[in-house]
Write a protein that binds this DNA or RNA. Structure first.
Lengths: 144, 144
DNA sequence: CACAATTATATTGCGCACAATTTTATTTTC
DNA sequence: GAAAATAAAATTGTGCGCAATATAATTGTG
């Protein structure tokens, strides 16, 4: 019993730790852009496709409206996005990037590389990590 | 530029997603014990060693008093721990497990296995994941 | 066309995380 | 031994994450 309950034997604790650790490493670089990590994720989704609904963003990030609505309002307050209800269906809120956000992209693109260098990750580490994590994430996608 | 900013090319997003996904998979089992995942982590630290200071717990989980103080108060309210200032140094708060918490251990020990089965992880997946994640976490430990 | 069912977002409430500051206790230094 | 420095928790404030519920618009059905 003892052995199974040790932190080092756990599945989730190392992943939970690493997730927080990497986000903390992102922080100083994202501070310069005056955005948080989850805000950065939302902008990345929008940089790939400049107009998207709240739902579409949520599906890509696995976040619901309880998380996204206030986050998007903060991005709007920073003048990085516009929120506008769709004319043809007023239930839908369409999110569009502002000029300010578009011009942030060139700085944002440099951040991940800085973090990787900061931590000293090799491309082999990255490939190994991404391979196994993605494999497991795919397993969970077909579950209830 | 486009390529580097795609979610699938990111280091952190898959880890951040997987961390949340696994914690969500823990939830139904931990709900039965009436505790959250971070509370479960704190209890695990204490099951390994029944008396510890707030600082000692924080070092093992990489959490500060801003997170731990309210969390510990909630565990105290659930009567799973006692919080008591050390006689010889009143700055220190010592956390001890209650009988109730000790008897929870036999149920708690079964949870990780249930989650692993739930997701359908093989022992090979687990080994691969733990090896690479721990390797990267160790790299970060020697950084500023 | 009314009315029930569905859909999209918003709101509320709770529990983390984490930075910054404060409080209280102890140790160090003069 | 008093003042300064250090140390341990607590507090405050902000921003997620997520469950549960509410609101409002649209669609489906008789």
């Amino acid at each position: 019993m003892e052995e199974k309950l040790q932190l080092k034997s756990q599945v989730c604790f190392p992943i939970y730790s690493l997730s927080r650790e990497i986000i903390n490493r992102y922080r100083p670089f994202l501070d310069e852009l005056d955005i948080t990590y989850p805000q950065y994720l939302v902008l990345m989704v929008l940089w790939e496709n400049e107009v998207q609904t709240v739902n579409q963003i949520g599906e890509k990030l696995n976040l619901d409206s309880g998380t996204l609505t206030p986050l998007l309002k903060r991005l709007e307050a920073k003048e990085l996005i516009h929120r506008c209800r769709r004319r043809s269906d007023e239930r839908v809120v369409e999110i569009t990037l502002t000029e300010k956000a578009s011009s942030l992209k060139s700085k944002a693109v440099l951040v991940p590389e800085k973090v990787v260098n900061d931590i000293g990750l090799t491309s082999e580490d990255l490939e190994d990590l991404k391979r196994i994590v993605t494999k497991i994430l795919n397993k969970t996608k077909n579950l209830p």
